[in-house]
Every structure is written in C-alpha cells, then in structure tokens.
Computed example of a mutant assay.
Amino acid sequence: MSNPVLKKNKNSREFIEEIKENVKPIIDEVIKPNAEIIDREGKFPRENFLALAKEGWTSVTLPKKWGGLDLGYVGFSAVAEEIGRVDASTGLVFAMHVAAAQFINLFGYEEQKERWFLKIREGALGTFSISEKATGGHVWYSLSQAERDGDFYILNAEKSFTTSGGQSDFYVFQTRSANSNDPSEQSFFIVNGHSNGITAKPWNALGVRGNHSGPLTFENVQVHKQDLLNAKAGDPDASGGLLGLNAVWLGVAQGALDAAIKHVKKTVHKDFNRSLADYQVIRQKLAEVKIKISGLRAWQYELARYHDEILASGGSLLPLATEVSELKVQATELADFAARVAMDVAGGYGYINGIFERLYRDARGGIPMAPSNNLAREQIGKQLVGLPLELWELGK
C-alpha cells in the first residue's frame, strides 16, 4: 500500500487538479472498465473500492497517524467527482464510506479509531444505515430504539435504503436512545457488518445498480457499549457527507458532457459531410451544460474549503447544512439535465443500451436521495419565511 504525495497549496485550484491526476490511473484502468458490467449485472464494485483503498483514497479525510491522507473535504470532493464521472455506483459507495469514516473521526473515541481506521486503510468498507421505511424521507426520525442489556445494546430495525447494504464491514447505525421517550434523543453505533442478525434484501433498481442500497434488517443485533459513538442528534456531520455525494453528481454531469462531446465529434453525416458538432443547436446545448457545471464546481469547492476551515478552527459544520442542501438540489438536477442533453444530442443512439441510457438512468437516482429535492426545498422555504421545521414536535 502507498499514499500519493501531494505538493500543491491546499487552497489552490492546482491542488484539486493534482488530486485528480493522482487518482486518474485507478479511474481509467479499474473503475471505468468495470462500469458497464456493474450496471448490467448489478455487481457490487468491490474491486473498484479495494483499488482505491490500496492507494489510500478510502482514507482520504482521515489523519495521517492512522494511514489516512488528511486531504479534508477538498480531497474528498475531488476524488468523488472523478469517480462519479465514470461510474455513479462506485461514487456513491465511496462517498458513503468516506462519510461514515469521517463521522467516526469526528465523534469517535481514540480506541474506536484505533480499531477501525487501520482496518479501513487495509480495505474495510463502511457506510451509514439511517433511513427507516416507517418515516420515509424524514431520515432524522428513527422509530427504532436501542435496548440496554448490561454491557451491550440490542438493535432491532428495518432500514429502508442503506448504500452498500449487506456488503459493508461496518455500519454507522442511527436509532433512538435506550430508555428515552424523546424521539430527538438518538444514539449512533459502530456495528460490525458481519454480526449475526443483519440481513440485506436484494437491490434491483432503475439506475446506480451497483451500489446495493436496499433494505437492511437488524434483528437482535448485539453491540458492545464500547461501540457507542459520542454523538447525538444535531451533532452529525450530515453536511460533510452530503457534500461528498454532491461531488459524485457533479461528476455524473461531467461524464455525460464528456460522452456527448465525444459522440458529436466522431459522428459524421456523410450526405453533407458534417459532424454533429458542426450543428449550432447541438453546440449550444453542450455549452449550456458546460456553463452550469463550471458554476456548480466553483460552489462545490468553495464549500469544501469552508468545511475544512471550520474543522481546523474547531467549529461546527451544522450551520452549513442548509447551503449544502441547496447545492444538493442543484447538483442532482444538473446531473439529470446533463444526462438528458447527452441523450438528446446522441439521437437514436442514445436509446440503445450503452453509456447514454446508463447515464440517464443513473442520473435520476440523486433526486429522491435524502434529503429528497422536494423535501429539501420545503425545509429551505420554511427557513426563508421563518417557519419551524417541525422535525420532532408531531411525534412527541
């Protein structure tokens, strides 16, 4: 195993490009060639993940003392964007893993970090298990509740969408706190993914078919008290994890544009001896996607730098949650827009099984992901006019 050596100033654009250049061999030689089979067979991208782990990328935000790269949210964003550019499924698996690892970094005890971070450096895969079928997109609200049994907690829950479900070596698991009648009092556990009582149901979806984000059942799963994290509702780094996911969707948009450009340049109408790129209407469609990507990319990395600055100063990331949700709406809808434009300019070829229809299906996945764009708009709108979010009141 080796770690890339980066030399540029962390606040520079060149630093981001250096990260992308360092991860590029894995992208081009491993992840991109696997994308089609992952989609066709619904295959979990284990090979891709292990290739990233070997070079330290799955520890991108973790401290160097644990073998991490310590590249912060800027590094996280850069790698997630590049992965999303060629395979959304691998991008989502990567982003959720890094978010879970970073959660332990922020809210874990030293003993927990020692037990898990070295395993992560060796290829252990993690994720969050939060959403529950009973509360839908209200992922902050758990109906499940931990039960205390001596030095152990007993977990019972039906989680609705858990990326890497059934594939992860550990889950950061959210549930209501034991012996509490207040739904806003929540506990977060590190659950060994190989524990007895964890059952994953098959994942068969329209797009992102390799991320295995299906239902996950926890039935009388025992977790020792040493695996209870020092976090509560309101603390979690939801904005940081979502920021990484946003970068994936930015990458999907760029991937759609890349595919469209390649297609229109090589496709020639022999009757007029013109390529598709010679038509102004097509160039304008591509230009519109490019302009939107450039604007969103600037916002993505400005927020990533801000996240890193706040953590360096010991501050809370919670105040950034609304802005990251705003970015989420735009990133996912841009991915969808870019995929539609790519299919449009490809004409009939866009409907044949292949990169354009795969991108189109994958790009739809971000819109309903938590927070769904409808829910995000509702929460943002309430804050704008000073109405309460009512996260817990109705359930008390």
Rank of each mutant, 00 (worst) to 15 (best):
N3Y: 04
P4R: 01
V5L: 11
N11T: 09
S12C: 00
V23T: 10
K32V: 01
E36V: 10
K43L: 15
R46H: 13
L50C: 04
T58I: 12
V74F: 00
E81Q: 12
T90S: 15
G91Y: 08
M96E: 14
N105K: 10
E110R: 05
R115Q: 14
L118C: 02
L125C: 07
G126N: 08
G126D: 11
I130R: 02
S144F: 09
Q145P: 06
Q145S: 09
Q145K: 14
A146G: 10
E147A: 08
A157N: 15
A157M: 03
E158F: 07
K159V: 02
Q167A: 04
F173Y: 15
S177I: 05
D182F: 02
Q186R: 15
F188Q: 02
G193D: 10
N204G: 04
N204R: 09
L206N: 13
L206E: 13
G207H: 09
V208N: 08
L216G: 04
T217F: 12
L228P: 12
N230A: 13
K232I: 12
A238R: 03
A238K: 02
S239H: 03
G244C: 00
L245C: 11
V252T: 07
L257R: 06
K265V: 06
V268S: 03
K270G: 06
N273H: 12
R274D: 09
S275T: 15
L276M: 12
D278R: 04
Q284T: 14
K285F: 09
K290I: 03
I291N: 08
K292F: 06
L296C: 00
L303Q: 12
H307Q: 13
E309Q: 13
L311H: 00
S313H: 11
G314N: 07
S316H: 12
S316R: 13
T322Y: 09
K328A: 13
D336C: 02
D336W: 05
V345S: 09
Y349S: 08
I352V: 15
N353V: 08
N353G: 09
R364I: 12
M369D: 13
P371H: 03
N374V: 12
A376I: 02
L387P: 01
L389G: 03
L389N: 10
L391C: 02
